[in-house]
Nucleic acid binder design. Structure first.
Lengths: 226, 226, 226, 226
DNA sequence: GCCTAACCGAGACGGTACGTCCGGTCTTTTT
DNA sequence: AAAAAGACCGGACGTACCGTCTCGGTTAGGC
């Protein structure tokens, strides 16, 4: 997800020469201000209550300035969520605990993932806006799920390389299971994403499917939440 | 999800006696007309475009008539979607092909599930409304996912009973994987739910996790039934 | 100036039969509330400051309700002004002092005409809105000038009848002089309409033009204001 | 009405010395371009539609350049109208036909006054802007009415001098009648200022009020000069 | 068979957010 | 330093839609 002008620029062939760009430059430092304001508002009034006027007021911006950069409220909110999502999975510095199970659990950072009201409210706002059109839906869910699925894939790939997992395992599909289920739980069901849920997914689905026998057997306590 | 009066009635203690219901009786044959109209409108204008006025006009009903039966647009849409969902999984007559894999595939009915624009539009409308409040989110996703997850659980239970699957498998968790992933794919990502997707889930995730070695890679013959 | 539906109704031939008017009836008692609110707002914030939101809030009405009755802010304001103008000249009960000069002066009611801030603000608002389109301009100025010019014409006609004024006088033109000049002074120049101004018009223009020799000669004091 | 700097300069005491004006000199040839552009736009989109952006674009100027010369849209429009009005009455070269009636008619130049759409649109724009504040209203109507009233006064004075008109006539008031009525007709009523209107004013009001018995009823020959 | 309460379709109502437009200011690059 | 271009803030515009209420009319019971 990107701003309007970035997308326009990309539509030009690389040989295009920008026509000297007269007039006052768009102040791209306002982008971050506006996105931050959007997240603040989202966290305060929730998905249903967010308003362009509120965002504009909070950002100290005019509505026209916002609409110059994003074509609709939906685009703005998706970009805003992408803005915080970016910080969550760092594909460059994946954990390395020696076992896949340890790696997958290490990816889970309770301080970021656990149900803070702010986070839940922000995420659930997405679902209500993604249905606006097909393109938004794809952009939005890519932003949410893709980086995490990539991380899972990388960890599984490494496990295959070191022989922990059979090369015949369908890690392409398996790497999407936890991120998708987590997104569904958070966006649609609006339940918190907890360690218990993660453990039941890893030990009940992922590890068995990869035929890694080190997986603990699920205990009652792990399943106490439906 | 039920109509307003049913829910209201249930809230009363069982000793409550309805006060003899004077006046004209509510015509419950209009319920179905209104739900059908809602689905039509959803399919035509999409989730973002649906309007109570449009539904009322399409149903040839007044808005008051609709609000007498459902308290909000969200409730109406959830009920409308439940209205078609109900036809999809028949918990009373589950397939019995002899193998779990066969059973799970038999549950998939291409004519109902495969990507029709109408179906996609209808489903994606849900996501946009569920975020309105917590109660709706639970009600809505229960309607979508629960019956299907129950069916999966029943089939897996049977496979355990007949010894096809280890009793140690976490079928509670596993029975939710396909329904949830399918819902996420349809509601949020707005991609069609296809046989390919189902096969990659069953053969890449479910069957391996259940340690059933009979899982095959998808072949042409699997798709001949489409 | 009339409401939207009245005008529409009038466009029908008299043989038209209204199609039974289904649905809730428009509550025409709200018309007066809204017009009063408009006048209040006009008097408080002035012509430049009037806002549909302010009027709606003051009237306790929704904006849609206002726009259902008047197509634009201009129409509303003109109607509002007409609403008070109507009270100013009562064509049925014209004064009868015995002389035309006395009658013309008697038409002037200081308590209504003299420059109250409220009145000036309200009147000057008209000018700023009349330029919106030709039809409004005619409607607006008709509302302001017509009733007054009609009264002048009737008084002059009576003076002709009783022989006070020559039948050859162009009373059609003369009857428009004072109302038009007064409107110009009030609307465009935004000066108060005073007794001094009226006297200089009657004694410097109207009475001489009618060749009535009873007119006082203008004195310096009458002309002290330019 | 004058430009900002002229007005500013005049506010200084006459001993003020301009501070040597460093840098590029303001190009005053742009003034006329901008005023012409304003008139063009007025004529094309009407009073309600005029926009500073439109004027700037039409003039090939930046908005800042305009605001450097006029403090507001109202001032610009008034100046623009004055720009054409200036050409209409030349107080230095008043007509001299030998009779007051002839002089007054000679002041009327059909090619400038008669109803062109352009002229009407331009004039009516004034009314919408004059109500902005008291100072503008005076400035605006002075520009429109003053020069014309002065010319009438001069012609009437001459008629008094040559004995055509009684010295007792209130020529101060009478000299304002036609200009004011014409302005009202053009600005507020938006009707064309025609020869017929002028003749009815002169022969129905002015000449009778001046007790000049030579006033004729309009004949064909009066219009042959059109 | 008549009364009356609750239903029905239609649509006006109060309120709120939308996305657009414009006035007047400020910034960037060019002349 | 002034010019053209155009982004910026603030705020009003007129539209659309939600959920409620009112209208005239219809459809059941209960009398």
């Amino acid at each position: 997800m990107t701003t309007k002008t970035e997308r326009t620029a990309r539509a030009h062939s690389s040989a295009d020469i920008e026509p000297a760009a007269r007039g006052r430059k768009r102040d791209h430092s306002r982008d971050a201000d506006i996105l931050d304001a959007a997240l603040d508002v989202l966290a305060e009034v929730g998905a249903a209550g967010i308003t362009m006027d509120l965002v504009a007021e909070r950002a100290g911006a005019g509505k026209a300035t916002i609409y110059r950069r994003w074509t609709s409220k939906a685009e703005l909110v998706i970009d805003a969520v992408a803005h915080i999502e970016r910080m969550q999975v760092d594909i460059e510095h994946l954990p390395d605990t020696g076992t896949l199970r340890g790696d997958l659990l290490a990816l889970f950072r309770p301080e970021a993932m656990e149900a803070s009201t702010r986070r839940l409210k922000i995420m659930s706002a997405l679902a209500s806006l993604l249905s606006a059109d097909q393109a938004l839906a794809e952009a939005g869910s890519a932003v949410i799920v893709k980086p995490w699925a990539d991380a899972h894939f990388a960890l599984m790939q490494r496990a295959v390389t070191r022989g922990e997992v059979s090369a015949r395992a369908d890690i392409t599909t398996l790497s999407q299971v936890v991120p998708s289920m987590a997104a569904y739980r958070t966006l649609v069901q609006r339940k918190p994403f907890t360690l218990e849920f993660l453990l039941s997914m890893i030990d009940g689905v992922i590890m068995p499917a990869l035929r890694i026998c080190g997986a603990r057997q699920p205990k009652k306590s792990d399943r106490s939440q439906t």
